[in-house]
Amino acid sequence: MFRSCLSLTRRTALGLAATALLSMTALSQPARAEDAKGFVTHFGSALVDIINSNKSLTEKKQEVLPLLQQNVDIATIGKFCLGRYWRTATPEQQTHYLKLFHQVLVNAVTDKIGDYKGVSFRVTGTSSSPNGELVSAQIMRPGQPTADMQLLIAHDGGMKIVDMIGEGTSLRLTQRQDYSSYLARNGGNVATLIKALERQLSHHH
């Protein structure tokens, strides 16, 4: 009797603990979504403010740079884009590659700045994915159809953007296919990729 009573209380305690845990995760889920939403709203309006300002293109590019460095996890994206070749690369190659990738990504964003004016932006919703929170947003440009996009926000060590999805296309996945295909066709040596990225950056204007 005593034993069954004990096991009952133990079970109850376990049950309670489990319920508490579940409700905690259930509570933290929307909280996370809200955080991610707020993060994207903040980042998006800061970016849109720069784009819509009357400053010169060079000034705009200079202002966007720290914004990207603070809010985008460029190293994680770079690692992802190298895929299975990340492990075959030497530590020096990894560092060198990430340095180049950083510039490639920044160029890809800043190249687009000049194209737009009178841009507005709003967050439309969030959903959870195994890799983080997916925040959906719409970008409105004058005389152009509304563009739907999603930003993937990871949580490890502060919130950061780890992917951008436009028209169902993940930028980091596409980039990984690009790099891995290039590597597979060029002997699989990361040094070749590094040379190619250097060449690409030197041709950039």
Partner: peptide, 19 residues
């Protein structure tokens, strides 16, 4: 912008189609 435009287009198109 891509090192292998063929692979870039292939991946982007496939993802877009799936979506």
């Amino acid at each position: 912008d891509s090192l292998d435009p063929y692979a870039f287009i292939r991946s982007a198109w496939q993802q877009n189609r799936a979506s």
